[in-house]
Simulated assay, not measured.
Amino acid sequence: MPRSGAEARRRLQQAALELYRERGFDQTTTAEIAARAGVNERTFFRHFPDKREVLFDGEADLRAALTQSVAEAPDDLQPLEILLRAFRKAEGILEGNRPFAEPRLRVIAETPALRERDLAKAASMSEALAEALRRRGVPDRLAGLAAQTGWAAFHHAMQDWIDDPSRSLDAHLLQAFDDLRALSLTVPPAQASTQASALAQARPGD
């Protein structure tokens, strides 16, 4: 039997992940998760409200770390730079959970009910970041856009980190935000074609 609440929680998470991968999320019960973890079902519900939340543990800690970092960022940073700084400061939380992160993402990707919960969690996190930016004086519309865009870049970096563990999460975060900046500087192909045609028509003697 696990000797502490933290140990029981960790074993429940690991047991759930194993069973979801073996049998599928829909076919796994909370009683089976508890039995695999060596605890009773009542212990499961002391730690998690339902079997979906086992895979989303740590969200509150991440939210608190990100919003605090946004609040403490230097005044001279732009919104996206504030968010990048926050994501980089939270890297320790995510790096420490890496063994759980990869299989977790795969289970979520394969399970409609979990994808729905993941989207809801992402929207909630994005809104928390937007509110943190608003409290810094960022206009409402820009705060929402920055939070949604920044969270998308963060999610992209997380997936790249899972796919390419040879580079740190920090390196993937920096790359994702560099790519985001590059997108805003790149002329779309259709626009570039239109501009080229306009220049050609404007040449003397044509």
Rank of each mutant, 00 (worst) to 15 (best):
F45C: 12
A15I: 02
D57K: 03
D76H: 08
A8W: 01
E81P: 00
I162F: 00
A31W: 00
A123Y: 06
R106M: 11
L77H: 08
N40A: 09
H47F: 07
A120G: 14
E59Q: 07
A101K: 14
R135E: 09
G205K: 15
A101Y: 12
T111F: 13
R85W: 03
L129Y: 12
S4M: 13
Q14V: 01
F48R: 11
P2N: 06
A65I: 01
R88L: 05
Y20E: 03
V70C: 01
F87H: 00
F100I: 03
L114W: 09
R135S: 04
A64W: 00
A60Y: 06
R11T: 10
G96E: 14
P74S: 09
T29P: 02
A130D: 10
A202Q: 12
D179C: 02
D61T: 04
A16P: 08
T67G: 08
S69H: 08
D50G: 08
A15H: 07
L77E: 10
A152H: 10
H156V: 01
L174A: 13
A171N: 01
A35S: 11
R11K: 10
H155I: 01
T186C: 02
T67W: 10
F154H: 06
D75M: 06
A73C: 08
G38W: 06
L199A: 04
E53W: 12
A171G: 00
A176M: 13
L169F: 06
D164L: 04
Q195P: 04
D179K: 05
H155L: 03
P74C: 10
F48M: 09
K121Q: 14
E116P: 04
E131T: 04
V54K: 09
L129W: 02
A176V: 15
P49V: 09
I108Q: 09
G144W: 06
Q14C: 00
E18P: 10
R52I: 14
R11A: 12
A35T: 14
L83G: 05
D163W: 15
S197E: 13
E127L: 08
F45A: 13
Q13M: 11
L17F: 07
S168I: 00
A90T: 07
F100W: 02
V138S: 04
G58P: 11
S168K: 02
R117H: 07
P103G: 00
P99H: 11
R115W: 10
F44L: 09
S184T: 13
R117M: 15
E72V: 05
A60C: 05
N40E: 09
T43G: 07
V39K: 02
L174F: 06
A64R: 04
T28M: 10
Q78L: 00
L12Y: 01
K121A: 14
N97A: 07
A192R: 13
S197L: 09
A90P: 04
E102Q: 12
I108L: 07
A200Y: 06
S126K: 07
R23Q: 14
P188M: 04
G205I: 11
D164E: 04
E102H: 10
L129P: 13
L17T: 12
R134L: 02
Q148A: 15
